[in-house]
Nucleic acid binder design. Structure first.
Length: 452
RNA sequence: UCCCCAGUAGCUCAGUCGGCAGAGCAAGUGGCUGUUAACCACUUUGUCCGCGGUUCAAAUCCGUGCUGGGGAGCCA
């Protein structure tokens, strides 16, 4: 007999003669004549109630059917006489697939997020973490669907990279030799690292295929100890040929609206859990993300707003500074209370590949700031003019020879193009109201922490 | 890396002025009930984070280290 997922059973409106379910026991309650077993199989948030009458096949397992045990149940799905569920399964055969020992750490009550991080291998069995992982999966699919519908091609950019100055932060070295061996004797004959961004590769592909995106793991060896940084995270990086900064922001905004709508549609039960127990303002946030136009504000105008703000800042504001968290939060959370694209940043605080504006002072960069999270997206129109790019690289002391292939793209049919990077875990934090990045990724990697 | 806070039973936490180590939940046993974070009774559980110091006496005070959390910087 074929196993049916609990999600499919709970979607039914009619009884079912013969079913087989398999899952894990959330709780067992006994009466003299029969027992209630709450079974969850991960297919959805809800569990299904199983009734096991004394004397039916498998009832002898009941004393060992404890929280966390794995079971298989055959029986009939019937209308439930009790309150709290429309249907339940009356068991005709109970099988104990795997027992759960006394030391099972998940109890039938709420645990702290900090404790659950110490048992990351078991926390997906809780309502909250199961819900996060289902939303993560759905969001990932929605991203792919969005770009598929928009005519983008999915590209796979390298994880191992030889370039060490993409300007995105400290890198993890990878090597097959020990300490004193020179890099020239190493596997690749030079220093190699884990990627911090697929952007430069993506640009090459965009300049052939038009619109592309890469979506994969990214690594930063920064000693960042915050709730918004991980050493290994997933980044989405679209890159579009014949696209300027405005088009770049258009795609970013459309993408987020699409994903929010999709999650609200197909993860309603899981989202409701977060709206009820994690962040009471979540539904309001999500509908605003979906329905409201995002603010688009130049860096210069943002500085003006901050200078006029009555709120006292710890760090003074002036044109040319890199905005501090408190400034970004003020804009997104207090002044506008919605997502804000900031664009045209001073060249001094942005990397070499961003396109120089006509004023010679700012570059065509854009960041999307969102309430609670801060920077969700960082992107730019890329410098497509060979001479301007060379100027910037010289000013920043970047060896052009190392970028010979990148420079080639500006020599052979160079076109205006744009792209951005979106931190996938930060998007999930936005969608769920979860406040720590360690809780939206199954096995988080952060400084000093590599268990599991 | 910097600043602040915390670390006591499996979990969540209380522990007053330095004077015998506590509660709720979980777990175990028994009971009861179409139950549903079930309920009732009883029972078990400690390197008070580690190391050093002050003191007649330290969970409590001091120093130091480790771990965790919040914030900052860096960024996505």
């Amino acid at each position: 007999m074929k196993r049916t997922k609990i999600k499919a059973l709970l979607a039914r409106t009619a009884p079912l003669e013969n079913v087989l379910i398999k899952g894990w026991v959330r709780t067992r309650r006994d009466t003299k004549e029969f027992s209630f077993i709450e079974v969850n199989d991960g297919s959805c948030l809800a569990s299904i109630q199983v009734i096991v009458d004394a004397g039916t096949p498998g009832a002898e397992f009941l004393p060992r059917i404890s929280t966390g045990a794995a079971v298989a149940v055959t029986g009939e799905m019937v209308p439930s006489p009790g309150k709290g569920q429309a249907f339940e399964i009356r068991s005709r055969g109970l099988e104990l697939v795997g027992t759960s020992q006394e030391a099972y750490p998940l109890q039938k009550k709420r645990h702290s997020d900090e404790f659950l991080r110490t048992i990351a291998h078991l926390r997906p069995r809780t309502n909250k973490y199961g819900a996060i992982m289902r939303i993560r999966s759905k969001t990932s699919h929605l991203i792919h669907r969005f770009f598929e519908e928009e005519g983008f091609f999915l590209i796979h950019t390298p994880i191992i990279t030889g370039s060490d100055c993409e300007g995105a932060g400290e890198m993890f070295r990878i090597t097959t030799v020990s300490g004193s061996t020179p890099a020239s004797d190493d596997f690749f004959g030079q220093e190699t690292n884990l990627t911090v961004s697929g952007q430069l590769s993506a640009e090459m592909m965009a300049l052939a295929l038009g619109d592309v995106y890469t979506f994969g793991p990214t690594f930063r060896a920064e000693n960042s100890n915050t709730s918004r940084h991980a050493a290994e995270f997933w980044m989405l990086e679209p890159e579009m040929a014949f696209c300027d900064l405005t088009g770049n922001m258009d795609i970013a905004e459309a993408l987020i609206k699409y994903v929010v709508q999709g999650v609200l549609e197909s993860c309603a039960e899981d989202i409701a859990l977060f709206a009820n127990f994690v962040d009471k303002t979540l539904m309001k946030t999500l509908t605003s993300l979906r329905d409201d136009a995002y603010i688009r504000l130049s860096y210069a105008d943002a500085v003006e707003i901050l200078l006029k703000a009555k709120k006292p800042f710890d760090y003074p504001v002036s044109f040319g500074i890199d905005l501090q968290s408190e400034h970004e939060r003020y804009l997104a959370e207090e002044h506008f209370k919605k997502p804000v694209f900031l664009y045209n940043y001073p060249k001094g605080i942005k990397p070499f590949y961003m396109r120089m504006n006509d004023d010679g002072e700012t570059v065509a960069a854009m960041d999307l700031l969102v309430p609670r999270i801060g920077e969700l997206i960082g992107g730019s129109q890329r410098e497509e003019r060979e001479d301007k790019l060379q100027e910037r690289m010289q000013a920043l002391n970047l060896p052009e020879a190392d970028y010979w292939w990148y420079m080639d793209s500006r020599r052979f049919g160079s076109v205006p193009h744009s792209g951005f990077g979106l931190g996938f875990e930060r998007l999930l934090m936005l969608l769920t109201g979860i406040s720590n990045i360690r809780d939206v990724i199954a096995f988080p990697r952060t400084p000093g922490s590599i268990d599991f």
